[in-house]
Design a protein around this nucleic acid. Structure first.
Length: 255
DNA sequence: ATGGCTACTCCTAGTAGA
């Protein structure tokens, strides 16, 4: 079983590439972030016609999450508990093949110390609280998505330039560690300890071709699922060519 | 030395992303 995550940066702009990629890689489950489309305009027809079931929650212009799957998934939640007054679409939880899959698009945070940064940290605190109160680290749980956090030096092309900046500040890294310490494993690091593996590259300055990237998209697995994860990869090919997203997909294989 | 882009919108300028 292959479960993938990809920040697509507008599903409408990326639809031809998305369809092509799904036909090429054929993941069992794909968690998408930044769909940037309201539900009534979600391009379900193009995806169901190639065999994918779609669950989604979007809003105008910003955010938006979706889960595509070859077998139907059961939607559990479409918002992070505690976000009841929050219209930002950043969370989608489903049940499929006996696994609970949570797809997140974490806030960016804009700038350390800004109101959006405080919102980001509060959002992560609510996510950790939700895990504590509602979920069991001994169950089959996969938490993936765009975390907007690079956890360690080896996840950043130039740690000294990035240190203390948004995406790579200590409070953000602590928020990430707090999720892991609940009882999750960083699936990529189980198999790939080396530096230089990134999932996002700035559109500007030819960053992708210069290797100026960050690893901010992650797949976290509960212990029972970690034992079933045999491989994981970042598909850099999907970042190449015409009109790419600024993120590459991450694909995890579970036996 | 700096910055270099892309996508969105009550759409050609401002906001946001990361």
């Amino acid at each position: 079983m292959i479960v993938a995550t990809w920040n697509i940066n507008s599903i409408r702009m990326r639809l031809p590439r998305l369809v092509q990629w799904l036909e090429l890689r054929r993941p069992d489950v794909l968690c998408l972030q930044e769909t940037k489309v309201v539900d009534q305009d979600f391009p379900s027809d193009s995806l169901t016609s190639i065999g994918y079931h779609c669950l989604f929650r979007g809003e105008k212009s910003y955010n938006g999450v979706a889960i595509l799957s070859l077998k139907p998934a059961e939607q559990v939640l479409n918002a992070l508990p505690g976000d009841s007054d929050d219209l930002q679409c950043r969370f989608l939880e489903v049940h499929i093949a006996g696994i609970r899959i949570i797809n997140i698009y974490a806030p960016n945070g804009q700038e350390v110390g800004s109101p959006k940064f405080a919102y980001k940290l509060g959002w992560y605190a609510r996510l950790r609280k939700y895990l504590d109160e509602a979920l069991d680290p001994g169950s089959d749980l996969l938490l993936c998505g765009d975390f907007n956090i690079a956890p360690e030096d080896r996840d950043v092309w130039d740690p000294e330039q990035w240190r203390g900046q948004v995406l790579f500040s200590e409070p953000e890294k602590e928020a990430f560690r707090s999720l892991v310490s609940w009882g999750l494993a960083d699936a990529l690091r189980m198999h790939r300890p080396e530096g230089g593996i990134y999932t996002w590259w700035d559109y500007r300055a030819g960053a992708f071709h210069r290797g100026w990237g960050l690893r901010i998209d992650h797949v976290l697995l509960s212990k029972p699922l970690a034992g079933r994860c045999t491989s994981i990869e970042v598909d850099r090919e999907a970042r190449k060519g015409e009109k790419p997203s600024d993120h590459a997909p991450v694909l995890a294989t579970l036996e």
